[in-house]
Amino acid sequence: MRKWLVFLLTLVLSLPLMAEEAVQQVLGAANEQQASSQQANPQVHENLDDYFLGTGDRIEIIVYGEPDMSMKFKVSKSGVVNFPYIGEVVIAGRTPSAIETEIEERLRGDYLLNPMVTINMESFRLFYIFGEVTSPNGYEFQPRLTVEQAIAIAGGFTDRADRDDISIRSGATNEVIEDVELTHPVQPGDTVIVEQSFF
């Protein structure tokens, strides 16, 4: 009988410790999953202060505490969205932070006391890569993308690629920049062209 009492007492005393260990394991797993997600999708956590939205970007506008005013959409060719209560807001050619500020200012007072607006990127518009790469195609842009990274995304050079003859056609101006370095930045809408070697 005494052995059973000792066993039960030990069990009761150990339950809080077991529960705490279980909580710590769950928290640890959650932290690992979050870190893994950040590594797999680094663009989600990049600072977008210097990114100008354009046609094809998919964004989410969140007004905290106002789910009816929050919305997800793809930026259209007009570059304008009709936002609840305040009407048209120009999206294309502007940074997320500039749009957040405008919506907050236009909502403040007449509609909300102290609105808080956040813009999240759902997906970026495409850049393109053609010529002597393994998988020429259009791919989703990534912040701070370089020519070298673009080539890697497209599967790398083919055996016939001329690594010293790479050009970029600007998506913004249609201008062709020849003989770019691997470190040259690639912008959304740009087309990277890797020429063929003749030797």
Rank of each mutant, 00 (worst) to 15 (best):
D57P: 03
E122G: 15
E132I: 04
T134Q: 11
L145P: 00
L113C: 11
S97T: 15
V81L: 08
L182D: 10
N47G: 09
F130Y: 11
N41P: 09
V176I: 10
N82I: 08
I151E: 04
A92E: 07
P84M: 05
V63T: 05
I129W: 01
S167G: 08
I86T: 02
V147K: 02
E148T: 11
M71D: 12
A152H: 11
R106V: 01
D179S: 15
P136H: 02
T95M: 08
N114D: 15
S70D: 05
T118L: 12
E100N: 06
D49V: 11
G93C: 06
E175F: 09
R169M: 13
I177C: 10
G131P: 00
P136M: 03
P84C: 04
S78W: 10
E140D: 14
P96G: 06
M71R: 12
N114Q: 15
E148W: 10
Y128D: 06
P42C: 06
D165E: 12
L126R: 14
R144P: 09
M116V: 15
A92V: 07
P42T: 06
I61R: 00
E178G: 10
L112P: 01
F124K: 02
E60I: 14
S97I: 15
L182S: 13
T158D: 05
R160A: 15
P96R: 03
F73W: 07
I103W: 00
A152T: 14
F52D: 07
I119Y: 04
G109Q: 05
T55C: 11
N82G: 08
R169N: 10
K77P: 10
A92K: 09
A92C: 09
